[in-house]
Design a protein around this nucleic acid. Structure first.
Lengths: 112, 112
DNA sequence: GTCATTCAAGAACGATCGATCAAGTACCCA
DNA sequence: TGGGTACTTGATCGATCGTTCTTGAATGAC
C-alpha cells in the first residue's frame, strides 16, 4: 500500500500504469482488482495511507496529484483531500512550495 | 493554439489525447505533428502562448500542470516554467491558491 | 479420501494511446 | 500549360492502457 502511494507520488495518477503498481507492490493484477476494484479505488486507499503517514512530503505530493489530476472532476476525491488538508492544517503556501520543490524549482518569484 | 492550451489546462497533460487536441483546434493529426513534432512540443508552445496571455488563471493552470506532470523529469519544461513564474512574479501562495480553486476547494486550513 | 471453495497468477481482451505515412489536392513559377 | 513542390487529410501502425477471466494449486470440512 505504501509502495503504491509511493508510485503514484512519483509518477502522477494518469502516468502510473497498473503494471507499475503490480511491479511496485508485488501484488498481482487479479488480486489488486479483487481488493480495490480499480486503479481509482487504489488511489483512494493511497490517500488514506498518506493521511496517517509521518512523512509530510508524501502527504503533500499525493494531495497535489489528487487535486490537480482528479479533484476537478471527481467530488469523492475532492472531499477526501479536503479532509486531509484540514486535518493537517495544510496551507496554500505549503502546497505551492512543495509543488516547486518536487518539480526541482525551490525558488519562486519571492522577495529580492 | 489558444484552444490547445485550453484543453491542456482543463484536462491535464497525460489525460489529454491527441484526438482531444485535433478536435479542439480543428487542425488535423498530420498537420499537428508537422507543426509541433509531438504532443510534448505542442505543450511547450502552449506554455509560450499563456506566457503572453492576459488571463492569469490560464497561465497559472498551465504552469501547475507543467510543474506537476512534466517538470520533475523534464528540465526543458522546468526551465521554461521557471521563466514564466519569474516574469509574472508568481508566488508559491498564488500557485497553491489556484490549485485549490481549480480543484473546487477555495478554502484551505487558513486562520479561523 | 474426496469434494467444494478460495485465492494467487498471468494470459488475453477491446479500446485507445502517440506517432507515421501514403494518397490526394491545390498551387506556383517557368 | 505543364511539372514539381508543399500541404492537407485520415487511415493505419505497434505499443500500451485499464480491466476481466481462465487456470491451477492450496486449504478445510466431513
Amino acid at each position: 500500500m505504501d509502495a503504491a502511494a509511493e508510485v503514484f507520488r512519483q509518477r502522477g495518477y494518469a502516468a502510473t500504469s497498473v503494471d507499475n503498481l503490480v511491479e511496485a507492490t508485488g501484488v498481482h493484477r487479479g488480486s489488486l482488482y479483487g481488493a480495490f476494484g480499480s486503479k481509482h479505488g487504489l488511489f483512494m486507499r493511497a490517500l488514506d495511507a498518506v493521511d496517517t503517514t509521518r512523512d509530510p512530503a508524501s502527504r503533500l505530493d499525493l494531495a497535489l496529484i489528487g487535486l490537480l489530476e482528479l479533484a476537478p472532476g471527481d467530488p469523492h476525491v475532492r472531499e477526501r483531500i479536503a479532509g486531509v488538508l484540514e486535518a493537517h492544517d495544510i496551507t496554500e503556501e505549503q502546497l505551492g512550495r512543495r509543488l516547486l520543490t518536487r518539480a526541482g524549482l525551490p525558488r519562486s518569484g519571492g522577495p529580492t
